[in-house]
Amino acid sequence: ELELEEVDLYRMNSQDKLGLTVCYRTDDEDDIGIYISEIDPNSIAAKDGRIREGDRIIQINGIEVQNREEAVALLTSEENKNFSLLIARP
C-alpha cells in the first residue's frame, strides 16, 4: 500500500533549481516508475523538506509521468514557476 502525498514547490525565477535528480529503479524490470535519486541540499525541494530520496513521482502538474525524459522536461521547464508533484512512498 503506497502513501500518496502532493507537494507544491514554488520558485521565484526560472534560475532557481528544484534540485531533484530522477532515475529508474533498475532492479525490477516491471517497475517503470520514476524515482528521486538525489536532492540537492541547497535547493527548493531540500528547503521544503517533504520530498525524500526514494520517493516515486506519479504526476507533475497533473501530468502522469511515463518516463525519465518526460519528468526531466517537466521539472526543468522554464515556463513553470509552480510545481505540483504527486509522490508515492511505501
Rank of each mutant, 00 (worst) to 15 (best):
E1I: 12
E1F: 15
L2M: 15
L2Q: 08
L2K: 15
L2T: 10
E3G: 05
L4C: 05
L4P: 11
L4I: 05
E5Q: 07
E5T: 15
E6L: 04
E6V: 06
V7G: 00
V7P: 00
D8F: 03
L9W: 01
L9K: 00
Y10R: 14
Y10Q: 11
R11P: 03
R11Y: 15
M12R: 12
M12T: 13
M12I: 06
M12W: 13
N13H: 14
N13S: 15
N13Y: 07
N13R: 08
S14M: 14
S14K: 14
S14I: 06
Q15H: 09
Q15I: 12
D16E: 05
D16I: 05
D16A: 07
D16P: 04
K17R: 08
L18Y: 03
G19F: 00
G19T: 00
T21C: 06
T21A: 10
T21S: 09
V22C: 06
V22S: 03
V22F: 11
V22N: 02
C23P: 05
C23A: 08
C23D: 12
C23L: 12
Y24P: 08
Y24L: 12
R25M: 10
D27N: 13
D27K: 04
D28P: 11
D28C: 11
E29G: 12
E29F: 07
D30W: 03
D30C: 04
D30M: 07
D31V: 08
D31F: 14
I32P: 03
I32N: 02
G33K: 03
G33D: 14
Y35R: 06
I36V: 07
I36G: 00
I36K: 01
I36M: 02
I36T: 05
S37W: 03
S37C: 12
E38K: 11
E38N: 15
E38F: 14
I39V: 13
I39K: 02
I39H: 00
I39C: 05
I39S: 01
D40F: 11
P41Y: 14
P41T: 13
P41I: 14
N42T: 09
S43I: 01
S43F: 04
S43D: 07
A45T: 10
A46S: 14
A46Y: 08
A46Q: 13
A46I: 03
A46W: 11
K47F: 07
K47C: 12
K47E: 14
D48M: 02
R50E: 03
R50T: 07
R50V: 02
I51F: 12
I51Y: 00
I51G: 00
R52Y: 10
R52W: 08
E53Q: 08
E53M: 05
G54D: 06
G54C: 03
D55S: 11
D55K: 00
D55A: 06
D55G: 01
D55E: 02
D55H: 07
D55P: 00
R56W: 06
R56M: 14
R56E: 09
I57F: 02
I57L: 08
I58S: 10
I58Q: 07
Q59M: 04
Q59E: 15
Q59S: 13
Q59I: 06
I60N: 01
I60R: 01
N61G: 10
N61L: 02
G62P: 00
G62C: 15
G62N: 14
I63E: 10
E64I: 03
E64S: 04
E64Y: 04
V65G: 04
V65E: 03
Q66N: 14
Q66V: 15
R68H: 15
R68D: 13
R68C: 15
E70S: 10
E70V: 11
E70M: 11
V72I: 08
A73E: 15
A73L: 10
L74G: 05
L74E: 11
L74R: 12
L74P: 02
L74V: 07
L75K: 00
L75G: 01
L75V: 04
L75W: 03
T76P: 01
T76W: 07
T76F: 11
S77Q: 11
S77F: 15
S77P: 07
E78N: 09
E78C: 08
E78W: 05
E79A: 07
E79K: 13
E79V: 06
E79S: 11
N80R: 06
N80Y: 05
N80T: 13
N80K: 06
N80P: 14
K81N: 06
K81E: 14
N82C: 06
F83K: 05
F83R: 02
F83Y: 06
S84Y: 05
S84M: 05
S84V: 06
S84H: 13
L85H: 00
L85R: 00
L86F: 05
L86H: 13
L86D: 05
I87A: 04
A88D: 10
A88P: 03
A88G: 15
A88I: 02
R89Q: 05
P90T: 02
P90A: 04
P90S: 03
